[in-house]
Each structure stands twice: as structure tokens, then as C-alpha cells.
Write a protein that binds this DNA or RNA. Structure first.
Lengths: 249, 249
DNA sequence: CGTGAATTTGATTTAGCTCAAGCGGGGTGG
DNA sequence: CCACCCCGCTTGAGCTAAATCAAATTCACG
């Protein structure tokens, strides 16, 4: 039932049938986009929002010296910058890591959706707050952990995020469409050092990683050894309920 | 006219007299708080929000290994986590860098304020989005710049933020109540290395820093040499206007 | 003045970077 | 169908920016 978008937002709110229908209708008819392209670029001021129904995307900045920092991943169901109209322009770009299914929603239409359904608006804001929490953890990761903890913690986060949307199988495996170069640009490490660090994680029996497929052999131990605590992902509760006086549908 | 809070929010919206009055009334009667204390701690779920009218505060996380990452600064007029009720609990703490004047606003009251005045709600959301943009830049800074660019960029950001609230004087000076230890914890560097890097910045004639007072001798050149571009601070425009159909007051 | 915290400087170590070369596998074109 | 080629992965050798450890100096404050 539903698509990745409605599933993702359902984490934050208990929607009525009416609201579900509205969400479904706004996310119908995705278009196919090829990997490598950008959904939006730094400096642009778009009048539409992009919704990722399938595939992976990533936020990034490129510095004058050519270096690139990856700022976060968008997984299926994620929406990019609902609130772009509140700021003057994009301060980063969003690129596609894989082929993807994308819906383009005019800002106006999204605006109306949020005005009509406050619960949807709050759920969208929740996802912004969670993104920000993840960003804080990334900063902590890059600022304070050595390469071993940093890579391990990162994989742990991805395992949890993928797990929360049902994309981890019973063998703790999931598709990880990231090159070691991209992992490095997410973590402030070179691809060479990411490679050596992954080797250590493999040798320690914590992960397997071949062919863009990751197995977290022992999620508990990996979390333990990297100091991972999933609290910051704010999974699993319905926060909008308390903020709405109207009895929910 | 107004306090630091109304001035800060005015950056994001052109408020009516009515809205101004509401903002003033909610931010009356600050309490004095001593430096070193926490406004809120990781794991807590408060039912009130803290508004900083004077002084500096900082968001931070402490890891199991004892290391600390500073995640951002709150300057006068900043509010901490208006939307804490949307998530289940604080994933970080907020401490005071200086003695401060703080107003405690019950979540309920803030909730009503936002429901009554959509323009205020949008302005508060704007400040969340700007915080997130700053966080992205911090991650980029820590992930991709060497210590010289990192410290310089950081000081450049602070100069701009302080300047935007009128706290930089005609000699490009402002109070910077951060120890080198705290700068280090913001930047993922040790205090020793921050010290050596500040020395280089001084020798290059870019800054003076004594007694917690910073002079940016040549803001343009400092920005040039550190690759600083203030776009991400999203200063100086009125984004809420376009989103409100109702003719503003 | 005296005391503790913050800054400064020096000596040494090291984690991660750079440069460079080899390898593997999957897709393409002859 | 096979050869080739490109891209990503892997490994090695050496280098360097920043960390660590330690001591001296300055500063703020009582």
C-alpha cells in the first residue's frame, strides 16, 4: 500500500484516508532519470520540488579548490527542499547516485497541500528536523572519530535508515550504491583510506562488502564498537498527534 | 526598537504592529543565567523553549570516548528548538558560553503564537532552515578544508553573523567569547593546533585576537583566502512575503 | 600577589594523504 | 565471441599535517 513517499511520511503521522489520497495524488506519475545527473544545482531558485520515489540521491557542495563534500543521502521517499521557497537560493546541489524515479511537484501545489492538511505540513517539517539531526551526527562523526569509527558509524547509520524503510533483508544485507570515492567525500577521507578502513572492518568480521552490496554481519557489535546510538534518527513514533487539537481521522 | 529576538526574526519577515507586539510580549522578562550551565541536555524532552536574549550559547554532543563536538552557536536573539515537540527527545545539549539573559516560553504558548500568526511561524521555520544551511557549511569546513582555511572560514562566518545583528563595530571588531579549546571542538582540531593556526592568521595580517576580542583586519581578503561565500547564511531578504496570500500589515 | 585557567611554544609521533602501479570485472565494439 | 578498455578497487612506499606530550608564560580574578 502506498509508495515510498507515503510510507516515509507515515513514520511521522497517522494520516486519514483523505490525507493519504492527497499524498498519493501528488506523488503519481514519476519520471525516469539517469544516474550522474543533478536534480538541482547550487545557486538555482526552482519553483518546483523533486520527490524521489526510487533510487538514491545525494546533497553536495563543490569548493573552489575542486574538493567535494557530500552532505547527506536521499533515499526512496525523500523529498528535496520542500521549503526552498523560504530561502532565496540553493546553497548546495543534489545529484543522482543511481537511476531514479522522480516526481516534480510545483511549489504552488505543495503549498496548497500543506495549507489544506496541517498534519501533512507537520510531517514534512518533521523530516526536515530529522535531516538536521543526521547532519549534526555527520559533523560529529567527521570532527571527532578516527577513520575506523567514522566509516563503521556511517555504515551503521545506513543500515538503520535502510532497515527503517524495509530495505534490509533477513541476512542483514542491502544495496549500497556508493563508490569508495563517494564514501570518502561523505566522511572527509580519501578513497584510498576508505579502502584500507573497509579492509579492517572486514578483517574484524564486522561487514562484508562486495559488488555494491553490504552485509552487516553483526549490527549490535558494529554499533557497540563505533559508538553508534540510533536515537538521533528519531525513528518510530508519531509526533504530530500531540500538536493537533482536531481528533485524527 | 525591539529586542534581539524581534530583530533577528525581522530578517525573515516584515511583521505587522500586531505581530511585533506579540513577539515582544512573549519575550519579556528574561532571567539571568550563569555561564557554564546547560540550557537543556541530551535525552531530555522539555515542555518549554528557551530564548536567548543576550549572551552566547552552543549546541554540543559528548561521545562515549569523552570527545566533544560543538555543533553550532546561538547568538542573541536565537531560540533553541522551537520544534522540539515534533521530535521525541533532544539528541544534543545546549550550554552557555557566557552569562546570559534567557526567556523560558512554554511550548503551549509558542504553539498558540504560531497558530495565530502564520508569518511568525514561517519566520521561525526560516531560522531553522538557516541553521541547517550553516550546519552543512560546518560539515564542509571540517571535512574538506585544512586547518588554515578552516579556522579562517569559521572566523569569517562569525564576523558575518555578528555583523548582521549589528555587533561588529566600525573597526571590524567584535567580542568572541570562545576559548581555543572551544574553537577546536567546533572545528575538529586540537586547541594546540588552533593556537598555531591563529598565529599564522595573525602573521599574515588577517586578524588580531586578544582578550576574547577579534579584529578582522581585512574581511574581503580573509573571505578570499578561505573560500568564504556568505550565500549560505541567507542574509537580507524577506522570504515569507511570497508565501502569504493575505496582504501584510 | 597568588592561583588556576588559558595561551604559547617546542619536540616527537602518527593517522591519514599523496603518488604510483597493478588488478578485476563488466560493458562495448570490432 | 573475444579483446579491449574504462572505472573502481587494491596495495605499496614515502610524506606531511595535525595530534600528542610536556613545559613555560601570560592573563583574569580574588
Amino acid at each position: 500500500m502506498g509508495n515510498a513517499f507515503t510510507r516515509k511520511l507515515s513514520r511521522f503521522a497517522d494520516f486519514s484516508d483523505d490525507e493519504f489520497a492527497a499524498l498519493e495524488s501528488v506523488s503519481a506519475n514519476p519520471e525516469h532519470r539517469a544516474r550522474g545527473g543533478d536534480l538541482i544545482r547550487q545557486g538555482e531558485r526552482p519553483d518546483a520540488v523533486q520527490l524521489l520515489l526510487d533510487g538514491w540521491a545525494f546533497r553536495y557542495k563543490v569548493l573552489k579548490n575542486g574538493r567535494r563534500q557530500i552532505l547527506g543521502y536521499l533515499l526512496p521517499g525523500d523529498i528535496c527542499d520542500v521549503h526552498i521557497t523560504l530561502l532565496n537560493e540553493m546553497d548546495h546541489s543534489i545529484g543522482l547516485l543511481t537511476d531514479a524515479e522522480v516526481v516534480t511537484i510545483p511549489a504552488q501545489q505543495l503549498q496548497e497541500l500543506m495549507e489544506r492538511h496541517r498534519r501533512i505540513e507537520l510531517a514534512l517539517w518533521c523530516s526536515v528536523l530529522v535531516d538536521e539531526a543526521i547532519l549534526r551526527e555527520w559533523l560529529t562523526n567527521v570532527g571527532q572519530r578516527d577513520s575506523f569509527g567514522r566509516v563503521g558509524h556511517h555504515l551503521c547509520e545506513l543500515w538503520h535508515r535502510m532497515n527503517s524503510v524495509g530495505l534490509v533483508n533477513e541476512n542483514e544485507q542491502f544495496d549500497l550504491p556508493l563508490t569508495q570515492e563517494e564514501l570518502g567525500d561523505s566522511l572527509g577521507l580519501t578513497s584510498v583510506h576508505v579502502n584500507r578502513t573497509l579492509k579492517r572492518l572486514r578483517e574484524d568480521g564486522l561487514i562484508e562488502l562486495t559488488n555494491r552490496r553490504l552485509t552487516v554481519l553483526d549490527p549490535m557489535r558494529l554499533a557497540e564498537v563505533t559508538g553508534f546510538d540510533s536515537a538521533y534518527l528519531h525513528l518510530g513514533h508519531d509526533p504530530t498527534a500531540a500538536m493537533l487539537r482536531t481528533p485524527g481521522g
